[in-house]
Amino acid sequence: MATRSFTSRRELEQHSFPPAVALLVPLGAILLQALLPRPFPRLAILDLPLIVTVFFAVSRRNPVAGTLTGAAIGLLQDALTAQPIGVNGMAKSVIGYIAASIGIQIDVENLTTRILINFGFFLMNSFLLFLINRRLLGLTNFHIYWGHELIRAAINTAVALPIFFLLDNAKRRE
């Protein structure tokens, strides 16, 4: 019988996903994000693409894959907005990278950890968007209300938890 030996935590818990899941889940998230606010305007507060980005990044535990996933999802999201293409792409690239890097270090299966990382990443996303719009694009009238961003982070964290549990079923150990 062959003996299994693992050299790192990353190798122990690195997951991959079937190509259909890896492609359709981000597309579905972007599509839902575009469709839901029309009948339910208050659902514009959600950021389903960011939830998916964080999930794939922490599950794959590969910073390069996390960066590329974040960039692809962000760019596609930008293409549907009136903003310059790259605003969400840059923010989600950074978040994908950091989420994958954190995923190597800590146990991201834990519920408390998931709550904390989701909340933290949503605030970080708002901060990155503020930086990109205000400093990089020079939009001086771009304002962010941090109270609103805290509420947004809390709501998205609450939505992210069941989505994470749902997507856990699609994981495939390498």
Binding site: P37, A44, Q77, A82, Q83
Partner: peptide, 15 residues
């Protein structure tokens, strides 16, 4: 008919 939005509350766009 309106068929979709940008899905982003920082960019108020409809399709």
């Amino acid at each position: 008919q309106v068929i979709g939005t940008s899905g982003n509350d920082l960019s108020r766009v409809i399709y």
